[in-house]
């Protein structure tokens, strides 16, 4: 590991403020997969994964 987390978090504050300024990101909105058969993929993600 190159750096201890605590040091990084300290410098992150500054980077964060800069980034928040030009590109605030609130989270992942969605993930889109291109698939060969969306109907069957949807069934898999419902049945196996509980979506």
């Amino acid at each position: 590991m190159s750096t201890g987390l605590k040091d990084v978090d300290y410098s992150l504050e500054k980077i964060m403020q800069d980034a928040e300024d030009f590109l605030p990101l609130w989270g992942t909105d969605y993930v889109e997969l291109y698939v060969g058969n969306a109907k069957q993929s949807a069934h898999y993600y419902k049945t196996a994964w509980g979506f």
């Binding site: 909105d29 969605y30 993930v31 997969l33 291109y34 060969g36 993929s41 993600y45 979506f51």
Partner: peptide
């Protein structure tokens, strides 16, 4: 198709 579980949204497109 858009599927959701709590905050996770998956879109499956063909």
């Amino acid at each position: 198709y858009v599927l959701q579980q709590d905050k996770i949204r998956l879109v499956l497109t063909t």
